[in-house]
């Protein structure tokens, strides 16, 4: 019961600062992704855009969605969900990438 009570609150001290900082980084990354979109990197253009998108999602997940403060179970859950998507993409492209 005692342990349960602790789990009601996700973090002990809520502060505004960290979120504003994360927001600034997100805006900056959006700027970067728009800026580099004009440059032709050839094949890695998509990779760059996706990498930035992944970093941005990571920030949203970790901070805005409080994943950082959640228990290990939650992190494992997110891992399982992402693994499922990853497997699906990889196996799907085992068909499309080869003749």
């Amino acid at each position: 019961m005692n342990e349960d009570h602790l789990q009601h609150t996700i973090e002990h001290k809520p502060t505004y600062g960290i979120y504003i900082l994360v927001w600034l980084v997100l805006l900056m990354l959006t700027g970067v992704t728009v800026a580099v979109a004009g440059i032709n990197f050839g094949n890695i253009t998509v990779a760059t855009a996706l990498t930035i998108a992944i970093v941005k999602s990571y920030l949203v997940l970790t901070f805005f969605m409080h994943l950082k403060a959640e228990t290990a179970t939650f992190k494992l859950f997110v891992g399982v969900a992402l693994l499922f998507l990853l497997i699906s993409i990889a196996l799907l492209f085992s068909d499309y990438s080869f003749l």
């Binding site: 196996l91 085992s94 068909d95 499309y96 990438s97 080869f98 003749l99």
Partner: peptide, 10 residues
């Protein structure tokens, strides 16, 4: 008519 690679993997 999938790729042969995919067929073997699956």
């Amino acid at each position: 008519g999938m790729s042969e690679t995919a067929q073997v993997i699956f």
